[in-house]
């Protein structure tokens, strides 16, 4: 069974998903960071495939993308890095997140094959149009056992939320507020109302909130009406700041700090 499905069967609240950029801060940090996140207790991990023009991302993730590219990171290198993680004791569910062009250039079927071969569980491709997914990608994702995650924002109409929910099979990624990643969203009444409104739709997929979640307070506020939350930019900042020899401990402390129980 897909590890994402297993996770959400086992756990229906306070799910913590942590995002980091592949090949960052150093080219070969991908697997060590993944291992440290699993050891620290992250429920699932979203690995970002770096891209030169990440329009949905704010400065922190833009810079991590550029640094990873400068380090020589590519889609092919990522699959090399991940090739035996499932034999080396990595059991945490893994999503790959990235913009469509590098995936298209790699070749979509070859990409899906490689995902299955290394043990990736799902994909987030924010600029993949829904109709292109339905027409071309859905059969491939199904064939290679990959679940798909779609984004929803406060501006997404209820009818479209239902349409996205009907096609998603990983989870629904609730963008907390209008903006790019790393924006300082305060978990105010507007966000709370939006999360309640979405909860009231009774979606069939689990929901995880992202954009602006950075600490225990925002994690708790975001998780109140949802299955859990996603932390990205705040974790990237930690990776930037932590010295290499103290990184594992810093990641432990970070995850414990976000979800203190």
């Amino acid at each position: 069974m897909n590890r994402l499905t297993q996770l959400f069967q086992r756990k229906t609240a306070d799910v913590l998903n942590v995002y980091f950029t592949a090949g960052f801060p150093q080219l070969h940090d991908t697997v060590p960071v993944l291992q440290a996140l699993q050891d620290a207790g992250a429920d699932l991990v979203e690995i970002g495939m770096p891209y030169s023009d990440p329009v949905a991302d704010g400065e922190t993730i833009q810079r991590s993308n550029q640094q990873a590219l400068d380090n020589g990171m590519t889609v092919a290198t990522l699959f090399e890095q991940l090739h035996d993680i499932r034999q080396q004791g990595i059991t945490v569910p893994i999503l790959l997140m990235g913009y469509l062009n590098p995936v298209v250039q790699f070749g979509i079927e070859r990409f899906c094959q490689q995902c299955q071969a290394v043990g990736v569980d799902g994909l987030i491709l924010p600029d993949l149009p829904l109709e292109v997914y339905e027409r071309e990608y859905r059969p491939l994702f199904a064939q290679y056992g990959l679940q798909v995650v779609f984004l929803v924002t406060p501006q997404t109409s209820p009818a479209r939320v239902r349409q996205l929910d009907a096609l998603a099979d990983g989870f629904i990624y609730l963008v907390a507020a209008a903006g790019t990643t790393g924006a300082q969203t305060d978990m105010n009444a507007d966000v709370d109302a939006y999360l309640r409104r979405t909860q009231a739709l009774g979606l069939r997929n689990p929901t995880l909130v992202g954009f602006g979640i950075s600490d225990a307070a925002s994690f708790a506020a975001a998780s109140r009406h949802t299955t859990g939350a996603i932390i990205g930019s705040a974790f990237i900042r930690l990776l930037q700041q932590a010295p290499a020899d103290g990184r594992t401990a810093a990641i432990q402390e970070f995850v414990r700090g976000v979800r203190p129980h």
Binding site: S52, D53, N101, Q105
Partner: peptide
């Protein structure tokens, strides 16, 4: 490839970076 919201022709690396 895909650039700025459209499928088009663009200058890019073999890895799909613009």
């Amino acid at each position: 490839g895909i650039l700025h919201g459209a499928s088009t022709i663009l200058m890019q690396t073999a890895d799909g970076q613009v």
